[in-house]
Amino acid sequence: MRMITGFLSPTSGSARINNYDVSEKPVEARTLLGYLPENAPSYGDMTVEEFLSFAAAMRGFRGKTARHRISETLDKCFLTSVRNQPIETLSKGYRQRTCFAQAILHDPPALILDEPTEGLDPNQKFVVRNMIRDMAKQKAVIFSTHILEEVEAICTRAIIISKGSIVADSAPAELKQQGSLDEVFRRLTTTADVGGVAQ
C-alpha cells in the first residue's frame, strides 16, 4: 500500500491510479488519492481545524472552497465538537478520525486506509466501518486489517498477502466456501496482512 501512495518505490511491478503511474507521475497520482497511514499520524501541536486547513491548502484549496470543504468534512467525521482542540489532547479515536478526515477532504476517487480501525473501541470501530461503507458507494477503497469479521462485513474483494506475495484473491463469500475465514487464513499463512477492497 505504501508503494501505491508513492512513499516507497517498488522493487518490481508498477501501480496506476486512473492511468497515472505512481513512479512516473507521483504528484498527479497522489492528487487522486486519499491516504490514512498506519497509526494515523498528525501534527499534535495543531488544532483539528488548523490541521485540516493545512491539508486543504496542500491539496490546492483556497478561501471559501477550503472553508466549505473543511466544515463539511468535520461534520462527516463527527469532529465539529473538537474542531478547536489541539490534536495531541484528543483521544485515539478522535485522532484517528482527524487523520481520516484529512484523507477524504478532497473527495478523492481512491482511498487507501492502513488499519483504519486499529486501536479503536467498539463504538468507534462501528462509526469508522460505516464511513468506509458509505465511501465505497462512490469510491475505490483499499484497506488493510487483521480483523477478519471486518472483511466479511465491508469488503467485496479480499486479498490475503503473505510475505509480500498474494496467496488469495477473491470475494469473501467465495473464500468462505472453503471454511470460515479464520481457517482459510490460517491455512494459507501463519503471519500475514489482509487487504480488502470495498466497492
Binding site: T5, F7, P37, M58, G60
Partner: peptide, 14 residues
C-alpha cells in the same frame, strides 16, 4: 518518529 513524514510526502508534493 511520529510518522507524519509519510503523511507529508504522500500529499501531492515533490
Amino acid at each position: 518518529r511520529t510518522g507524519t513524514l509519510e503523511l507529508l510526502l504522500t500529499f501531492p508534493v515533490t
